[in-house]
Amino acid sequence: MRGWDQHEGHAVALPIENIDTDQLIPARFMSTPRSEGYGRFLLHDLREGAQDFPLDRHPEASVLVARRNFGSGSSREAAVYALVDAGFRVVIAPSFGDIFAGNAVNNGLLPAALPEDMVDQMIRSLGDGAAPVRVDLEAGLIRMGGAEHRFDLDPTWGLKLRNGWDDIDLTAQHSDAIAQFAERRATRFPWAWPGAKRSV
């Protein structure tokens, strides 16, 4: 995964609350290998029935603005794959599902939390259209239509997004500490290892 500091693109509004992961990608698509691309599954059922869906009107959009509790629901990382494969780099919302937000960061997608009134303001100003937006990760700023908004982001997530770090590589640096911990735990709490399997 490549890191990024700045992103310039177009924002589009999807003014819906609780866009859960089942809507982001319906379950029936999830047996598809990632190599085939997940972009076409993004919000599939919501889009198919709707005329003039915001994402279809502005296929160039790379920043999505939505209402609270975006990405609630299941742990399916496929919801993030669908957004990323459809070209999104940033989702702006007042709040995110905890598991979704972590998954997003692990795939280079920024979950930018902004106060609800600011999100409302953005949604109003975007309306049905798309507008240029600039996101600065280090400064924690989103610039859109002459306004500047500061977003909240876990500092570790900021570092990961900017550097494109893979946690497995970071954790590998602590392999000795892990091995020592496991040994101590096995000695002090032997019950924490699965007991000998007996008949059911």
Binding site: R76, E77, I99, G102, D167, I168, I178
Partner: peptide
């Protein structure tokens, strides 16, 4: 607690999970 696929890979590879 539930985790996404990247984290599942992390646990498989290291038996640990980074978490705030």
């Amino acid at each position: 607690f539930g985790i996404g696929a990247t984290q599942v890979a992390h646990v498989l590879a290291t038996q640990t999970i980074p978490q705030r």
